[in-house]
Design a protein around this nucleic acid. Structure first.
Lengths: 214, 214
DNA sequence: CTCTGTTTGTGAAATTTTTCCCAAAGTCTG
DNA sequence: CAGACTTTGGGAAAAATTTCACAAACAGAG
């Protein structure tokens, strides 16, 4: 168990990043159940991820466990949160005030994790001006101007397919660097921007594939 | 270009299945733009997936292209739909009639792809009896009884974390074989059942990671 | 302080997935 | 119908990711 150079250089595999979030979720549950510490085997059992995988994932970022004891959960949670950049609140812009947009704006899960939807945007003049929950709805054309004040770096796209690229471009022009895209289409962005696609229909289709075989 | 044994045996990589849905989406767009055929390079450009990847993915299922010409889009769409089991309508049960459940029930994207939410379930007696859009809301306890008639094989979980496992168990007991889980937790199911997790908060956390580096 | 239990972190092996590459197949032009 | 292009399918190489397996680290009991 040697010390590693505090390497900020080696690229972290994307699957690792995706699992980190699962570990964090698991650690929170364990802590809520008043556990003080847990072994990689215990976290593995709960998340369905292989224990060696967990240890290797964490080892990219440092040494957080104690042989014979496992991981101190309070410390691990703090480390994971810091690694994921969750140690500060993030303002979020929502584009699209339709059904999905409304549901997302009232979804409490984001807020609990420090993601605050601070403004919504829509092309529909009927929706502009009103509030959605306690989130003001602006005209899409106002996005850049509004965010000049807000300075949000995260955006959510909840518009129809045809409007997705334009919404993306508006967000990027306004300084947003990370986008959660619910439209069932690939949007083009410069490589500096991170986009994650959450295509509900695609998820259904994938389920359908596995249903296929009786 | 030799013929392959019509192998129903080789396991298809999961990433391949996930991409199949993206190809299908792309093919639909191309057809909507009145294209008759397209090369793997064209589809690759549009989806951001490597052309060789596309060809290999398709080659698991047969030979759908013509050298020098590419793929006939009408035929490819039909093949992809059949491969994914999308050649018939699927009834879907929705558990949870909260904000998210309501948004999902009114989401038109599912319907357009042949997924029909036929019934919703909730523990809250206030919600039971009313309709959500044109989808009836039943008591969760009625799920098995209701589905005895409906025979749906797909379920959506849109309940709080604490209720997710119980919702899953109800769905499985009622004969559901594929589940889309929006609760931010891993649910345990027998290996016969397919679960896909769509954890919105997790997606945000992953974005946060990539935002971290300035 | 020694012996027994555990459990970590990590090289190395195994496995999986992606990409390269090119012969074969087909189109198109003249 | 020959020659120039294009594009597929798929074997083989490369790359990425997961899993194994074990020395080293530490706790706790006696």
């Amino acid at each position: 168990m040697e010390t590693k150079p505090p390497d900020g250089l080696t690229r972290i595999p994307e699957p690792t990043i995706e699992r980190l979030s699962a570990y964090l979720q698991c650690v929170r549950v364990l802590r809520a159940e008043s556990h003080q510490s847990a072994s990689s085997a215990e976290i593995a059992r709960r998340t369905g991820i292989h224990a060696a995988q967990l240890r290797k994932d964490l080892s990219y970022f440092g040494e957080f466990g104690k042989p014979g004891l496992g991981y101190n959960l309070a410390a691990l949670e703090a480390h994971l949160a810091r690694i994921m950049g969750l140690d500060k609140e993030r303002d979020v812009l929502l584009v699209g005030a339709g059904n999905l947009g409304r549901a997302l704006s009232s979804y409490t899960g984001f807020g609990r994790r420090g993601f605050r939807i601070v403004a919504a945007f829509d092309v529909d003049a009927h929706k502009v001006g009103a509030k959605m929950g306690d989130c003001p709805v602006y005209a899409l054309s106002e996005l850049k101007r509004v965010n000049a004040k807000l300075g949000a770096e995260v955006g959510i796209i909840a518009v129809p397919t045809a409007a997705a690229q334009a919404a993306t471009d508006s967000l990027v022009a306004a300084g947003v660097r990370a986008i959660l895209n619910f439209a069932p289409t690939t949007v083009e962005v410069s490589e500096k921007i991170t986009v994650r696609n959450v295509d509900l229909t695609s998820q259904m289709e994938i389920l359908s594939y596995y249903l296929r075989v009786e």
